[in-house]
Write a protein that binds this DNA or RNA. Structure first.
Ligand SMILES: [Mn+2]
Ligand SMILES: [Mn+2]
Ligand SMILES: [Mn+2]
Ligand SMILES: [Mn+2]
Lengths: 218, 218
DNA sequence: ACAAATTTTTAGATTTGCCTAAATTTTATT
DNA sequence: AATAAAATTTAGGCAAATCTAAAAATTTGT
């Protein structure tokens, strides 16, 4: 498969949102930053290769084979993202462009050994799950920190309240996007949380916890 | 620059053998596993881009700019080779194909941080020197182990005597291609050597040392 | 229901990198 | 020096991936 075919397959996968509903030509064109006419051409080719199911004017879905290919590319993309952050000190918002290139390197051994080198990670720096070699993975969901069950871990992916005082508070307490947060315990009385972040235990109020989004697995 | 252009530039560099003598169309075609007519096309394009000096029928040499580009690709190739061997447990002879792909990834930060992650290595797994970011590097030479000065280190790259008894000896003493060997001392009396290999000190006779090739720097 | 708007596909070009076959230039041999 | 051989370039084409403009199908709105 060519680099371009791989990018199309991956985009069709993401637009299919897991449930693999049909994806429109225009939607693909926008994500690929190309014209709908180019997408039509490519879809025809992918269809001939058995990667997508396609009926003219009716949109596309990934075939079983196409889904397998998509998951292997997603796996590579996310493993490389972990590598960049964990081993090369990239920050979570710098990795995408480079992973977009690295995901196309062809070598089964490379990706197996990279997985091992990284300690078989389950999630990438954005909290998204990494498919296994055989294509299995758990879904991830975005939850407010105060709704995350005790004992769960997640990646901080956003804020609900983006006011300067709140952001300043996060800064002061060294809580940043991309940080991994583990919910140790919850105080029934006032809803305050005991969390572990970067191996440090801290307590935060319900007010804080209800304004921070975490991406968690399952 | 495209992937193909980069491969041409690198091949022209290697065929120029450091001194950057002129390189023939046929030689490039053979290395690129393509036809001479395709090479002519590409040379014309590289010439227009100022990467090579070219007069019809007279072969090509790299321009100053072309040399800089070549060295940056060689740098990337060799750093990735070190990564594959040191971090991902690839062996000596498995790295080339993958490095051939990885060398084309575009990200200055990536290669700077990779260099750091690897501890700023000076040579690749084949004993070849790794150019610095600014393009400087030491030449490497192939020497019989018994001609390597005391205090020098090199990579085992070949044997002079390839008879089964000799190869069996190397095997038994766990000396393999790709191993790094440090010459600790030399016995004047019989020419025997005291070497360090994989952190183990051993003694070998002059007869052994005069049949093993090392690639050393400077 | 049917015209208008939108989406999608087709037609015809362009660019990159490659090919074969033929022409040209250089190099080697008598 | 003339001819044969080898190397190199040109000419003309092809496949992949893209584009613009135009045609066709679908969806939307009244
Ligand atoms: Mn990509
Ligand atoms: Mn990610
Ligand atoms: Mn390459
Ligand atoms: Mn090498």
């Amino acid at each position: 498969m060519t680099l371009s075919e791989e990018d199309y397959i991956k985009i069709i996968y993401h637009l299919g949102k897991g449930d693999q509903g049909t994806v429109s030509t225009n939607a693909i064109a926008e994500k690929m930053e190309t014209k709908p006419s180019s997408v039509s051409d490519m879809i025809k080719k992918l269809s001939e290769k058995g990667l997508v199911n396609y009926k003219k004017y009716q949109g596309v879905t990934l075939s079983e084979y196409g889904l397998k290919v998509a998951l292997s590319i997603v796996r590579k993309h996310r493993l490389w993202e972990v590598f960049l952050v964990e081993k090369l000190e990239f920050s979570w918002d710098e990795v995408h462009e480079v992973a977009e290139q690295l995901e196309h390197i062809k070598s089964e051994k490379l990706i197996d050994m990279l997985d091992k080198h990284l300690g078989f990670p389950q999630i990438d720096p954005h909290g998204d799950p990494i498919p296994s070699k055989s294509g299995e993975f758990k879904k991830s969901i975005k939850r407010l920190l105060n709704e995350v069950p005790i004992g769960k871990e997640g990646i901080c992916v956003g804020v609900k309240d983006s006011s300067p005082p709140f952001l300043k508070f996060l800064d002061k307490n060294k809580i940043a996007l991309g940080d991994s947060i583990f919910v140790v315990d919850k105080e029934e009385f006032d809803g305050s949380l005991h969390i572990k972040i970067r191996d440090v235990d801290i307590r935060i109020s319900d007010q804080i916890a209800s304004n921070l989004y975490l991406r968690i697995i399952e």
